[in-house]
Design a protein around this nucleic acid. Sequence first.
RNA 1: GCCCCUGUAGCUCAGUGGAUAGAGCACCGGUUUCCUAAACCGGAAGUCGUAAGUUCGAGUCUUACCAGGGGUACCA
Length: 526
Amino acid sequence: MRTKIREIVKGIIKELFDEEVEFDIQHPPDEKMGDYSVNAPFLLANKLKKSPNDIAKTILDEIDSEIIESASQIKGFINFRIKKESWLEELTKSITPDYGNGNLGEGKKVLIEFVSANPTGPLTVAHARSAAYGDSLARVLESQSYNVDREYYINDSGNQIKNLGDSVRLKIEELKGKEIQYPPNTYQGEYIEQIAREVMDKNIEDYGEFAGDRILKTINETLKRLRIDFDEWVRESKIIKEGKVEAIITDLQKLKPNPLTEREGALWFTPGNRERVFRRSDGSWTYIVPDIAYHRFKFERGYDLLIDLLGPDHQDHVPELKKSLSLLGYPEEKLEVKIIQWVTLKRGEETVKMSKRQGSYITIDELVDEVGVDAARFFYLLRKSSVPMDFDLELAKEESERNPVYYVQYGHARISSLLELAEEKGYSIDSKENLLKLNKKEEWNLIKKIPEFTETLEDSARIRESHLLTHYLLDISKLYHNFYQNIRILDGNKDLIPQRLFLSNAVRNVIRKGLKLLGVSAPERM
RNA sequence: GCCCCUGUAGCUCAGUGGAUAGAGCACCGGUUUCCUAAACCGGAAGUCGUAAGUUCGAGUCUUACCAGGGGUACCA
């Protein structure tokens, strides 16, 4: 619907003024003003040296479209009222499974890297947000014709893996009866003991590597449980082994001016005001260098757009990452980094301290055991990524009955049950006949809300945030509950039964599709 | 020191530079002989942290400041 209006107004502006302008299409504050509003006159006022009012009037005179009932201008806004027939035509399209899909992405290849937790312990709820967010974003982008790959980067060669190996070794000694004093950098969770028991009698050379692989396996299982499947798993060790890290240094040193400086035995990256060590005085790389090599490897695979979802602990190195990549000739705007803010875990008033090393943390598996996959995913996708959020486990349990996810799922189940009953009674639920007979406010609220689904998906994809979709689903569910409560469908006016069933069917389709894009199930009954 | 995020109703939060700032929860009051009450309807609730700037127009952008949270220094 929005697209159609854009075309109409664009055409008129082109014809009248020979101008092109990126105007906005919104919904007026009061529905009495119309269904859609366009702000183009303001944007043209400067160029044309005319008042927005006059421009609006001129444009109004040229409007002649089959879908528009009427148009008016108020204070420079052009407001449109759409013909009932056009709304209903849109409604008839909305029962197909691919309704809402768009072409914003034009088939562009996108790589989303997310979670990428070090394989030194089970995933925590802190990762769950990024997991839910990344997967849902991928689904939304896919619906808009982006070609998306999900990738997990495995940091399997740093100090942390050494520490992991040491932790296992110490645990084995402890299990054999030795008194052990654990150094501060070791991991002490229950999983360490499990792995130690498993390997203690085997002949294994590298405990760190073995433990890392074992943990990675459980991470993957947890992700699968969250309905998340990665297309690629890329190992840092492989990037290093293939010489990609040295290549970065070599290529940066070829640049003029050379952004690398040797000082005090270390190699510094000094392209501007900020400085950062790339190679320590002991000859080892700081973690950022393999990271740069990894990102170049992403570009080399031909992606049009890279999206990184990082935790706030990684934000400090983003400027250097982007800077070095752009120095190497990769356009900065093709790398979008989104910082997913932390989740603070709470039990009632008490903050749960999260420490992998000490083994005090809540895992995703535990979270899912408590609240379920649906509630967990929906909950995370209720907020935009830049807002730090509290996750109160007590509250999540206590409120699980009132959790918004149930509100939407209940709407879906309600419609499903209604349609099932209707079909038993011999009614058609997909007859497009006589929809014009619908004339109640509750019905038209829904009819006009449905095309917003398309708009919401497009907006979500554009700003890379799926909470818009979550909120949309809550809105349309509310409108449906309102409709359902106030209008008797099967016991009401016999003439309107097929039309109301058709409308219900359309709403169900949109809710089902929306939930699917969030990775939440749409139950037939509850 | 440097960097990031947040500040909107009692609470939790929406709000691609547009018109009179919105929901949910909580609170108060109603609705079930009837297709799922995990529901619906009504009510009350605001100096959008402060100040300046940018412009036709600022909750939204810029700068400074205030408050809260977090990150970081040859760990990752």
